[in-house]
Amino acid sequence: MNQPLLDIQDVTVEYPGRGGLRAKPFRALHSVSLDVQRGECVGLVGESGSGKTTLGRSVLGLAPVTTGKVLFRGQDIAHADRGRRRELAADIQVVFQDPYTSLNPALTIEQILAEPLTVRKVPRAEAQKRIRDLFEMVRLPADSGTRLPREFSGGQRQRVAIARALALKPALIVCDEPVSALDLSTQARVLELFKDIQEQTQVAYLFVSHDLEVVRHISHRVAVMYRGEIVEFGDGDQVTGRPNHPYTQKLFFAAPIADPDAQAQRRKERRQLLAAQNA
């Protein structure tokens, strides 16, 4: 296998404990290792407090890495300074959970998409063509540029956020619960959009979610986090369909299913698994 695009090696993240100098530090991540190949989607799933968002933030330089390495294209960026982080912004982007709070409400959509291109001093004609291409890529009307974020639905705003993340043609996008604020039908459409964009551009995703069903639909490989550690990591179909770790099994059986027959089958599988474990 080729050198990973992103290679997280034994990363530990600790925060100062509460209660003074003698307070025990809080360890959010415990020696976590994970890699993402070029053009791959790795799903990172776990309940609230599992450490999955902290891991994504450590890649973005938003969570301080206590020990370990975060290698991007073979170079350790765990402790990159501001200048290096500005350089990395062209290659590593992020899509947050709530697009409205991440979009400047005073700017038009065209101005929002033009901002990173302007910072990188992309010639005006090239930038305008890039913006038109981005509208097409995320399936927004060509006349969207003159409108403000508040004039769009939640799903449309997330498409704008995805377009902004794609503006500089990054190699990696950290997706931090990007569909959890959307209704189920809109979730499905946005997930399909993520998949189509990856096929077109070969961008890699570190896709953070609390929902095993969401990561199942989009991920090539899936890592399951529990109490700051990765407890299961492997092929997406294997991890989400035939999980080995008890915590992953808990997530699997807790995931909602619309089909009543599938629900009944899953309850049967759970009873069989519990019987086998207790035998």
Rank of each mutant, 00 (worst) to 15 (best):
P141V: 09
K121H: 05
D91T: 12
Q111H: 07
I131H: 00
A142E: 15
E126N: 08
F96V: 07
V138R: 01
E87Y: 11
Q93K: 01
L88F: 13
Y100A: 09
L107V: 12
A90F: 12
V138T: 06
E115Q: 05
E126R: 10
K129S: 13
P105I: 09
E136V: 11
R130A: 12
Q128D: 12
I112R: 02
L134S: 08
I112V: 10
E126L: 07
L117A: 00
A114N: 00
V95L: 04
T108M: 08
N104P: 08
L140K: 03
Y100E: 03
R120Q: 11
A125Y: 13
T101M: 05
Q128W: 01
R124D: 12
M137S: 03
M137V: 02
Q111L: 02
D143F: 08
R132Y: 00
T101L: 08
F96L: 11
A125W: 11
D98Q: 07
R120A: 12
S144I: 04
F96N: 06
R132T: 06
E115K: 01
K129N: 10
F96G: 08
A90K: 13
T118K: 05
F96K: 07
F96S: 07
V122D: 07
A89I: 07
P99Q: 11
E110G: 02
R124M: 08
P116D: 01
Q93Y: 01
R124V: 12
L117S: 00
V122E: 10
A89K: 13
D91M: 08
Q93C: 03
E87M: 13
V94W: 03
L103Y: 14
I109Q: 11
D133S: 06
Q128T: 12
D133Q: 11
E126A: 14
V122Y: 09
V138A: 00
G145T: 04
N104M: 14
V95D: 04
I109E: 12
P99A: 10
F135I: 03
T101A: 15
V95A: 02
E110N: 08
R132D: 14
D91G: 07
V94P: 04
K129E: 15
L113Y: 05
V94L: 10
F135R: 03
P116F: 06
D91F: 10
N104G: 11
A106C: 12
I112L: 15
R139N: 06
E115H: 02
S144K: 02
R86Q: 09
A142V: 14
T101F: 02
M137I: 02
P99V: 11
R124K: 15
I112W: 06
E110W: 05
F135Y: 11
Q93A: 12
L88D: 09
S144M: 04
A90Q: 13
Y100D: 06
P99R: 09
K121M: 02
I92K: 13
R86F: 04
A125K: 15
E126F: 02
E115T: 01
R86Y: 04
A142C: 14
L107K: 14
